[in-house]
Design a protein around this nucleic acid. Structure first.
Lengths: 313, 313
DNA sequence: CTGAAAGCGCTTACAG
DNA sequence: CTGAAAGCGCTTACAG
């Protein structure tokens, strides 16, 4: 016990005893056992993190935020990539539950269904990231995807584009919320909201090129495209360059997320800047508060987005 | 004990007993305790993964390969981003050791020094990824960065470029090996190897633009740039477009890694295609073999690279 | 095929 | 401030 205390709470132990412990630790190369500690204390200091993708920087930034908040607090995390698949989610939740995590930080877990039940049966706090549309008994940190879509579309209309189209891939719930914002803006302006190319394929630069080509074919009058993320927008820009279509002269392009290349593309991409790092950091902070028994009063934290106008639209 | 057996090795238990166990599991929502199992069996089924960065897709792809190999085998991993920092490495190794991992999969851990000693004192097998230049007692999976740099430079020379420059960021050991290949090719051709812009800043598209500008200033005669990765190359391309410098007419651009955007850029980028997913998968497979007591004969696995000529050079 | 015993390395809670 | 006791939930190894 004295050893245990000397390691965790040195102040509780006489300097002499402490010194002997420290000497032994150094001599033996002692490494504490996480498993034993978890078993004895029933606190694992592990949190499970579930994200739908790592292939663009969106969730990598969020992970960095989580890391920076949870790391100094002595927490480890299990990072699971669900690849937007519900089966993979269920599988990861099951294996992670085995590790007795103190909490979960997730994106893309449905509010209902078997996974949700598993989670609440385990009595592990869950913070949802990127999605504010949660029931009051759930915790969430994010911004309004719908309003972001609306804001960007409004901007395009104000710039004088009369026939904007929407290009989207993956079609996860957040993308569909952006789309809802797009449609609402067009309807309010009395314009046709149905200029859209949607596919459930995973998003990528290459796909952006293909979808732009498809848009040109199906809606030749289209004068601006709102791509549901910057990868797609960059691909669309490349495709326009390939075809000699002037951007923004003949075709305006807007993206979403403000990934690093967007500021440097020629022309640079108009986009919505999202607080990706902050979402991770604040979600982690919220979880920490819950774990410490001091949950904040409001359980939905809106971190806002900003419109970033650049050259492409 | 019968319960334990029914769960792990159902065949060892009579169907009747098994059924009773299964019923109880379902009724109680039983979740096995990883901590207890680790403590009792002294096998954690956890492996520590250390990568220097997650901000481009290079290591994300590698992680996917690791996942696909280790996941089905029942292993979990702790993913640590060292951010190219030796201190962060040391810190992560220490905390991960606490979890008693069965093995480590790492990139960027020095062959010498304190970390290496910690690791070998812990008697945990370590597989090095992306770096073949290891002593015979170490395990590694990768390709020759030096030969890759040499091959790409040779290609530029064969295409008739007479004054190629080298643009690099981060300056980690792998980058410096590519540079060594570049210099060797130029020396063998009797050309000046010193046309280079190096910076230890982290690589990004924006930095590529800045470095290309710097190259134009310092070496106006430069007719081709070998960028040590595709992010930089893409930024360089954007900068050329911004300045009206024709690619490849006035300036050829080559990258490294063949990230997804490179095939779609206008013009598309000449690059070296690297087996990123395979490196993760094979490193994991190698580790599994070691853990199972069947290490392969050779401890360095060369997965090769390929030259991918496209429009930009 | 089943089960009783001991122990993995810690922490909790209590006694001194 | 220090320490003896008990237990966290499994597995190993041995007995029946």
């Amino acid at each position: 016990m004295t050893v245990s205390r000397a390691l965790k709470n040195p102040a509780q132990v006489l300097p002499e005893a402490r010194a002997r412990v420290e000497a032994a630790v150094a001599e033996l190369g002692y490494v504490p056992s996480h498993a034993a500690r978890t078993l004895a204390s029933s606190r694992s200091r592990v949190v499970g993190v579930l994200v739908p993708s790592l292939s663009n920087e969106v969730f990598v930034d969020t992970l960095a935020g989580i890391q920076d908040c949870l790391g100094p607090a002595g927490y480890q995390f299990l990072i699971g990539n669900t690849n937007y698949s519900a089966d993979k989610q269920a599988e990861l939740v099951s294996t992670y539950l085995t590790h007795a995590p103190d909490g979960f930080l997730v994106t893309g877990i449905d509010g209902s269904g078997a996974i949700r039940q598993r989670l609440s049966a385990a009595r592990v706090p869950v913070v949802h990231m990127y999605d504010l549309s949660r029931t009051p008994d759930q915790w969430s940190v994010g911004f309004s995807q719908q309003r972001a879509g609306f804001t960007l579309t409004k901007y395009l209309l104000e710039r004088g584009y009369r026939r904007p189209g929407f290009i989207a891939a993956q079609l996860d719930p957040r993308t569909m919320q952006r789309r809802a914002g797009f449609r609402r803006a067009l309807r309010e302006a009395g314009l046709d909201p149905d200029v859209e190319i949607l596919t459930s394929e995973p998003s990528s630069v290459g796909l952006g090129s293909k979808l732009l080509a498809r848009m040109l074919e199906h809606a030749p009058a289209c004068d601006a495209v709102f791509c549901c993320n910057d990868d797609l927008a960059l691909g669309a820009l490349f495709e326009c360059q390939r075809r000699g279509v002037l951007v923004p002269g003949q075709m305006a392009i807007a993206g979403f997320n403000d990934l690093p290349p967007s500021a440097w593309a020629t022309p640079s991409l108009t986009t919505i800047t999202t607080p990706r790092y902050q979402i991770g950091f604040e979600a982690a902070r919220l979880l920490l508060q819950i774990l410490d028994g001091h949950p904040p009063e409001r359980n939905h934290i809106d971190l806002r987005f900003t419109l970033t106008p650049r050259e492409s639209a």
